[in-house]
Design a protein around this nucleic acid. Sequence first.
DNA 1: TCTGGGGTCCTAGGACCC
DNA 2: TCTGGGGTCCTAGGACCC
Length: 426
Amino acid sequence: MPMFGLADVNSFYASCEALFRPDLRGKSIVVLSNNDGCVIARNAGAKALGIKMGVPWFQIKNHSYREKVHVFSSNYALYHSLSQRVMIALEEITPRVEQYSIDEMFLDLTGIDSCEDFEHFGRRLREHVLNTVGLPIGVGIGQTKTLAKSAQWASKEWKQFHGVLALTPDNPKRTTTLLENQPVEEIWGVGRKIGKRLNLMGIKNALQLAQSNPRFVRDNFSVVLERTVRELNGESCIPFEELPSSKQQIICSRSFGERITSKEAMRQALCQYAVRAAEKLRGEHQFCRHIGIFIRTSPHAVNEVYYGNSAGEKLVLPTHDTRDIIEVVMRSLERIWLDGRRYMKAGVALDDFTPNGVTQLSLFDEHKPREKSAQLMNALDGINQSGLGDVWFAGQGVNTAWKMKREMLSPAWTTCWNDIPIARIK
DNA sequence: TCTGGGGTCCTAGGACCC
DNA sequence: TCTGGGGTCCTAGGACCC
């Protein structure tokens, strides 16, 4: 019988910010989204102050608790590197780990119980990560991914579990009690919309959903929710996936630090996103056959008519060449750009991948692939990843006002030599 | 004045085919 | 009065995740 674990770092971004700042132990911390837009992470202290997830920063920055809370811009270089460390620490103890998100890993714990009690294992894991990386994790264990998620949720919700909870078939009463106490919107796979609809039908907790007829759920909702019902009953439908699956789509988009009003600035921004998207594409060892862009003004602005539009092209030849991607992006912008708008956000999306650039060329095909494209892109990526130099495309521009706002950024403690933490002994 | 970014999967509907 | 049916492919949009 399969058994799944879920390890989740507590208040991940906030915990990362505290890791190299011993002076912040026990203080309230929040982390803001890109552009210092809204709150995307809070530690226990910040939650206790009543700071809600997702609130816009400008709404609370003059609040009376402002003095008590330490605020940070998102520092993804730091979070990614610490996420890797957690992953490595988990792999030292668990044979198979699936990285599910930046702060969550599924664990294949099948058969572990032949030598160790599940909860004992979970506690050992927790201590190991705390000792080697310094970050606190919670561990949930169950017969399906959904049950492991529910267990992890409960391990946070009730203090007596101390961050580790196992739902095992030999104690069905425990599972029933947990599900009875879990509101339906807290189940993995049930969001706000479906949660509301379920509530209207009188299905308010996870146990009620688990006891619903799967056929009824499929007909009235979807096969996705039917799967959730089955998973809540211990029937594993979502498999463990150790190898990261290859991407179907790559998106690079940002809100601007300042509104963009000139086409030239928009060209620079899109050019930069195109360069980054192309790098990611090559990192995936893929070629794309579709390139798209979108631009939009702020949907929140009063006294302004909202404008949002997208455009793109299907390619005859798959590409991973930055020059091709920039070309299409610029042509697409010509088709949807409108003067006189204050643009807030734009992005580049690559789609429809194939593992190589070679397709059957017809004898009379006018479209010829670029010569030496792969070598040039290789050289470019090599230089930019070496840390020794920086090569960029003329269209990208330098140091412009629309660039992301990050006024409260912490140092890149783990990824930049200049920022390495220094310990002083008194 | 100020509201994240990056993904996945599924479904419905239209175009087209025989 | 009559106006098939079934299949595929594509796209847009909606739901979800963190």
